[in-house]
Computed example of a mutant assay.
Amino acid sequence: MKTKWIDTWRDSLARVKRGGELGLSGLLLVVGILLSVALLPELPGLVRGTLAGDGEAARTLFVCVAGIAVCMLQWRWRTAVYPQLRRDTSQKNTP
């Protein structure tokens, strides 16, 4: 009787952790999209400044592109980054 309660509690905790990890990965994806949208109008000026030799423009462009890449790659590889997403919680282990 006690093990059934513990198994139920474990399943509930696993679902909560899975939902949290999905939520966090989704939030980071939205941050990457917003960063892309914010960079888009400034992109011509940053590229022009980088080609002209402006170090600050080059640094800003690099940081923005790296931030977007990290956000997109963590979404693409979210099952590697968030361990709870590797398991399918809808399937129960039967002994």
Rank of each mutant, 00 (worst) to 15 (best):
G26H: 07
G26F: 04
S12E: 10
R78F: 01
T3K: 07
A14F: 01
D7T: 14
Q74S: 06
L28T: 07
W77V: 07
M72V: 15
C64F: 09
G20Y: 09
C71F: 00
E42H: 06
P95N: 13
S90T: 14
C64V: 07
N93I: 12
W77N: 04
R18S: 14
S25Q: 05
R10F: 00
L22C: 02
I68Y: 04
A14W: 02
K17L: 09
T94K: 05
S12Q: 11
I68P: 03
V31R: 03
R59S: 05
T94I: 09
L35R: 11
R10T: 06
G32M: 07
A57H: 02
L22Q: 11
L27T: 13
L24V: 08
R15G: 00
Q91S: 03
Q74Y: 01
G20W: 09
P83A: 07
D54E: 12
L73G: 03
P83N: 12
R15E: 01
L85S: 08
W9F: 12
M1A: 13
D7N: 15
R48M: 08
L51M: 06
G67R: 02
Q74C: 05
L85G: 12
L40F: 15
E42P: 02
M72N: 10
W75T: 08
A80T: 06
L35K: 05
W5F: 11
Q74N: 10
G26T: 07
L28A: 04
A52D: 15
N93R: 10
P41K: 09
I33P: 02
V37D: 12
L46P: 00
L35C: 10
K17P: 00
M72I: 08
A69E: 09
L61Y: 01
W75N: 03
G53W: 01
P41S: 10
I33N: 11
E56R: 14
G55S: 13
A66V: 15
V65Q: 04
L13P: 00
L85W: 06
V16G: 04
S36Q: 15
F62P: 01
I33T: 10
A69W: 05
Q91H: 08
M72Y: 09
T89H: 09
F62D: 01
D11K: 05
K17E: 06
A38T: 08
T94P: 04
D88C: 10
E56A: 15
W9I: 15
L29A: 12
L40Y: 14
W9Q: 05
G67C: 12
I6K: 13
M72T: 13
T94Y: 06
R59C: 00
V30S: 03
L29E: 06
V31L: 08
P44M: 03
S25T: 14
R15V: 02
L51H: 01
I33L: 14
T50Y: 00
S90Y: 11
L34F: 11
A80Y: 07
I33Y: 11
L22W: 10
A58E: 04
R76W: 14
